[in-house]
Amino acid sequence: MGSDVDLMAFLHEHGDQQFCRACLAFAFEVSLPAVDSTLAVVGQQTALAEFPGQCAICGRLAFVTGLERRSARPPEDRVLQLVLDQVGRFLCPACIARRLGLNIGTAQKAVWQLRGSSGVRIDGPACSECGRRGLVVGPGRQKSFAKTVGRARHVPETKREPRSDPYAKAIVEHITTAFAEDAICTWCLAGHAGVPIEDVRERVQRVSSHIRITTKPGNCPECGRRDTLFSLGGGQ
């Protein structure tokens, strides 16, 4: 194949069509492995869809590749939604690509674009679907949310603020959820709980009258920033 630029130009020229690997190999006079590797490179530069369908050249039913529909949600949004729906599971880019009908290069790029997302963990255990070890992605801090919120619910009702106070209830739910089971710094807590950074300490103080919260200086395990770290210390 001349270059990934040639293939990208070809796919853009036929933006509403999809092609099988065999026809692309024949059209560009290259091997099937060369088609795969070039498509992966192109997929990292422009979003490509890959799914079972009819090839626009030969008409056969096969796995075909073409440009993502303009109306489709961005790949990183779809990958994030898939990851957050897979509680306790980790997926490799190949399985993500197969699940979402994406080219492997497009799936890989989407995964790396999610590295800064607080809800995602990269480089976890083996893929829960195919067993492959290597780069996998799964829920990050959120995977501990259910357990943490469960701990918060064991706080005696008499020690909570009145249920009629929605502001207090929101504080408890947001901050205990954001804590998960790890220590967390002021900045990350603000981002997780949707609380203005200047209000975090005051809200933590309110919650600490109902749930034991410990504070200590250290490096945040999430962002690495040196700051005051908050963590759950059990019910009072």
Score class of each variant (00 low, 15 high):
Glu13Asn: 14
Thr158Glu: 14
Val195Pro: 02
Cys220Lys: 10
Gly15Leu: 05
Glu222Leu: 10
Ala25Arg: 06
Leu48Ile: 11
Val200Ile: 04
Asp85Pro: 06
Thr214Pro: 04
His192Ser: 05
Glu181Trp: 07
Trp112His: 12
Asp6Tyr: 03
Ser117His: 05
Thr158Ser: 15
Glu222His: 13
Pro74Met: 03
Leu91Cys: 01
Gly119Leu: 08
Ala107Trp: 01
Arg141Leu: 14
Leu114Thr: 05
Asp6Ser: 06
Ser117Leu: 00
Lys216Trp: 05
Ala94Glu: 14
Ala110Asn: 01
Arg73Gly: 12
Ala27Gly: 05
Lys159Asn: 15
Glu29Thr: 14
Cys127Asn: 01
Cys188Lys: 10
Gly191Leu: 07
Ile197Val: 14
Cys55Pro: 12
Gly53Asp: 08
Gly131Leu: 10
Val35Met: 09
Pro166Phe: 02
Arg203Ala: 06
Pro156Arg: 15
Pro162Ser: 13
Asp77His: 11
Arg206Tyr: 09
Cys223Gln: 07
Ile211Lys: 11
Ala40Asn: 07
Lys159Val: 12
His12Ser: 10
Val42His: 01
Phe51Tyr: 15
Asp199Asn: 14
Met8Glu: 15
Ile211Asp: 10
Glu181Ser: 14
Thr38Gln: 01
Ile122Thr: 14
Cys185Thr: 04
His12Leu: 13
Gly235Ser: 13
His14Gln: 04
Asn103Ile: 06
Arg73His: 13
Gln54Ile: 15
Val30His: 01
Thr46Asp: 06
Ser164Gly: 02
Gly131Ser: 08
Ala168Glu: 08
Arg99Ser: 15
Leu100Thr: 03
Arg78Phe: 00
Gln108Met: 09
Ile57Glu: 07
Ala56Met: 01
Ala9Leu: 15
Asp4Ile: 04
His12Lys: 14
Ile197Gln: 11
Cys127Ile: 00
Cys188Met: 12
Phe26Leu: 15
Leu32Ala: 14
Lys109His: 05
Thr176Arg: 05
Leu100Lys: 02
Gly234Ile: 03
Ala110Lys: 01
Thr186Ser: 09
Ala9Met: 13
Phe28Cys: 06
Trp112Gly: 04
Trp187Lys: 13
Ala190Met: 08
Val35Gly: 09
Thr65Asn: 01
Cys95Pro: 04
Leu82Asn: 09
Gly2Phe: 05
Arg153Ala: 13
Arg206His: 12
Val83Lys: 02
Glu50Arg: 15
Pro93Gln: 04
Cys130Ser: 10
Gly191His: 04
Cys55Gln: 10
Thr46Cys: 08
Glu29Cys: 13
His192Cys: 07
Val41Gly: 04
Met8Gly: 09
